[in-house]
Amino acid sequence: MSELHGLQTKITEFEAAGARVIAVSPDTVEENRGVVQRFDLDFPILSDENLELTDALGLRHEGGSPNRDKPDVPRPATFIIENGVIVWRDLTDNWRIRIKAEDLLTAFREQTSS
């Protein structure tokens, strides 16, 4: 979740660049609200409890969570989207390490039309 905290620290710059930011988690809406409050996020978190969007994008990590009731989670991934289409993606090879907010901002400015 450290990437959410990082995004929030640069949220005004993302907004100034014209970005809409949405996070997606496998948690319930209630759990996501807890995260929004904890990190004081200005962007929403969507609840993909059934991993519907996760599967549509090929992100399911089987057994990726220690939670035995819900062992499957999305792998960490960040997409930049314009006109309904993915124009850039970052898939880390280590789920501990996520793209830094400043690097994402640079990628966003480069990849999207201004």
């Binding site: 809409r20 948690d27 969570s65 939670n67 930049i80 989207i81």
Partner: peptide
């Protein structure tokens, strides 16, 4: 409720994470 295809009409950053645990 947010329709992802609708949201994707904006310039969008979509971040997936593994959930809180």
């Amino acid at each position: 409720a947010i329709d992802i295809a609708d949201a994707a009409q904006d310039k969008l950053i979509l971040v997936f994470y593994r959930g809180h645990w």
